[in-house]
Simulated scan of single mutants.
Amino acid sequence: MTIPGRAFDAVLSDLDNVIRFYDMAELEQREAEAGLPPGSTAEVAFAPENDMPLMRGEITKERWVETIARGLAGRVPLERGRELGNVLAETKFWADETVVGLLRDARAAGLPVLLVTNATPWLADDLALLGLTGEDGLFDAVLSSADLGVTKPDPRIYREAVRRAGVAADRCLFVDDRRENVDAAVALGMRGLLYREPADLAAVLAPVVYPRSA
Rank of each mutant, 00 (worst) to 15 (best):
M1S: 13
P4I: 06
G5E: 05
A7K: 11
D9Y: 03
A10W: 09
V11E: 07
S13G: 09
L15P: 10
R20L: 10
R20G: 07
F21H: 15
Y22P: 00
D23I: 00
D23V: 00
D23K: 00
A25D: 00
E28T: 00
E31T: 03
A32N: 04
A34H: 01
A34K: 02
P37E: 08
T41C: 02
T41F: 00
F46P: 15
A47T: 14
E49F: 08
M52K: 11
M52N: 14
M52P: 05
P53C: 04
M55Y: 05
I59E: 14
T60M: 13
K61S: 14
K61A: 13
E62T: 15
V65Y: 01
V65M: 10
T67Y: 01
I68H: 03
I68Q: 04
A69Q: 03
A69C: 08
G71S: 06
G71D: 05
L72M: 05
R75A: 11
V76P: 00
L78E: 13
L78W: 05
E79F: 04
E79L: 06
R80P: 03
R82M: 09
L88V: 01
E90L: 09
T91K: 00
K92D: 07
A95K: 09
D96Q: 03
E97R: 14
V99W: 08
V100A: 11
G101P: 06
A106D: 02
R107A: 13
A108S: 14
A108F: 03
A108W: 03
A109Q: 12
L111I: 02
L111W: 00
L114W: 05
T117H: 01
T117N: 08
A119I: 02
P121C: 06
W122R: 14
W122M: 10
L123S: 12
A124W: 01
A124G: 05
A124K: 11
L127M: 10
L130P: 13
L130N: 03
G137K: 10
G137F: 01
L138W: 01
F139N: 07
D140Y: 02
D140E: 00
A141Q: 05
V142S: 07
L143V: 14
S144G: 14
S145I: 03
D147K: 12
D147L: 09
G149L: 05
K152C: 15
K152R: 14
P153C: 08
P153H: 08
D154R: 04
I157N: 15
R159P: 11
E160M: 06
R163Q: 12
R164D: 14
R164I: 08
A165C: 12
A165V: 09
G166R: 06
G166P: 13
G166A: 05
V167M: 12
A169S: 15
L173K: 08
L173F: 06
D177I: 05
R178Y: 12
E180C: 11
D183L: 15
A185K: 09
A187C: 06
A187I: 02
L188N: 12
G189Q: 10
L194A: 09
L194F: 07
Y195W: 06
R196Y: 03
R196Q: 09
P198Y: 08
A199H: 03
A199P: 07
D200A: 13
A203Q: 11
A203G: 13
V204R: 01
L205R: 09
A214G: 15
A214S: 15
